[in-house]
């Protein structure tokens, strides 16, 4: 493995880990359900795809790399759709987002 490849892989892995860290801090800091699920969906999806891209760079052109690409593709589809269904179900049973000028009980 060349040094460039290794450096790129490590950079991508660290970037993905930082995105995941932002996601988990946001889960603790944000006030209510919708902002939390929105943040979790974005950071988890991007973080996972970036981490898998880092692993693909680490692996090189192999079969495992192709499988990782498929994992990234399907996780990238499934994760936002799952959060969409979750938020939709929450809205339908009557949970309303807390707006700026009112005090909801998220």
């Amino acid at each position: 493995m060349s040094a460039v490849q290794e450096a790129l892989a490590v950079t991508l892995l660290i970037a993905g880990a930082l995105l995941m860290l932002v996601g988990s801090i946001g889960l603790l800091r944000l006030p209510e359900f919708y902002s939390r699920s929105h943040l979790a969906s974005n950071t988890d999806t991007l973080g996972m795809v970036v981490i898998i891209a880092g692993l693909m760079v680490f692996e090189g052109w192999t079969m495992a790399s192709a499988k990782l690409a498929l994992v990234a593709l399907f996780a990238g589809i499934a994760n936002p759709v799952a959060i969409h269904a979750l938020a939709r179900a929450a809205f339908r049973i009557g949970l309303r987002p807390r707006l700026e000028n009112e005090r909801g009980e998220g």
Partner: peptide, 17 residues
């Protein structure tokens, strides 16, 4: 059936894979 077309399309796309 789900009323959200996003869920429908995603489920139909991913199930065969």
């Amino acid at each position: 059936p789900s009323k959200s077309p996003i869920v429908l399309v995603a489920a139909r796309t991913m199930a065969p894979a």
